[in-house]
Design a protein around this nucleic acid. Structure first.
Lengths: 157, 157
DNA sequence: TCATTATTGGCATGTTATGCCAATAATAAT
DNA sequence: ATTATTATTGGCATAACATGCCAATAATGA
């Protein structure tokens, strides 16, 4: 059953996407409620899992993680059925900050974050290419982050 | 000049990546400081741009954004030099939640979020394929989100 | 060793979160 | 339409928190 969200709920989500540390007083003001019902709605959204959590967004360059790679992984045809083990392996790699199983030419697309090329080479050789079901890996190096950590396009209806 | 971060700064970043709404008292406790210097450090990290902001992480399915596509865009060779206009155009599309210029076979990889296939078809036809410098577009549909919104692998040294 | 600078912890004050209750608004049944 | 029922709201009181200031401590360099 999809959770029903009214206009105020969507405003709350929008506001908290823009600034996850808004005080409840400020948030209430923005969405046109008094603090008390506003807080109840936020708690409900958290409870229901609509809000999965809160994150500080960190500048990658500032923490010496200047290299982002979109790594496309192709899986051996025979192991495609039991790709669960590969998923778990990918999920456990800290440098893989996001990963999707996709329907295109590659089977997985992973976003990998490392300090530099040497670190990526090490990860590729020692970790990614060691995964047994991997048939082929193609690396797309990010030369420029055009847009990152953007808010979701919440439907307004 | 790279901003120097000591062990406590890294602990702060780690903690705020895990929970961006930690109270300063709780954060101070976790990193082994009293609230006052802890708050000063957080403010400094915000000031210096190491912390770029705070975000609520929202469940895509809960807000009817169940379809994620990694759209690979290839640019006409002659327009590659002045790709700035394309970048700006991509950045302005709300459904594009992240986008990188890459060094591989495609020139851009965009992460697109829409409610369903019909919405993607509309975006593709009416927006993406209308961009004048685009030579080819390949769509990788996410069938399963293996890992999303993961924390950065902060170096511990 | 001493002087200088940066960083810390504690304290006081204003702000915020949070739980409770009565009042209001929305909904459903007759 | 009217009334009963339910859900949601706003206000209030209390406890926790943020924030700025100052003296004390720790780190740094001469």
């Amino acid at each position: 059953m999809p959770i029903s969200l009214d206009a105020i709920d969507r405003k709350i989500l929008q506001a908290l996407q823009d600034d996850g540390r808004l005080t409840n007083v400020e948030l209430a003001d923005r969405v046109g409620l008094s603090p008390s019902p506003c807080l109840r709605r936020v708690k409900r959204l958290e409870q229901e899992g609509v809000i999965r959590g809160y994150r500080a967004v960190i500048d990658r360059n500032a923490v010496s993680l200047g290299l982002t790679i979109f790594t496309e992984i192709k899986v051996d045809r025979h192991t495609r059925a039991r790709a669960d083990a590969l998923q778990a392996a990918l999920m456990a790699i800290p440098q893989v900050v996001s990963c999707h199983m996709v329907s295109g030419a590659p089977d997985f697309i992973a976003e990998v974050v490392v300090p530099d090329l040497a670190a990526y080479e090490a990860l590729l050789s020692n970790v990614l290419l060691e995964l047994p079901m991997v048939e082929d890996i193609r690396s797309n190096f990010s030369m420029r982050a055009v847009k990152t950590d953007s808010a979701l396009p919440l439907p307004q209806e």
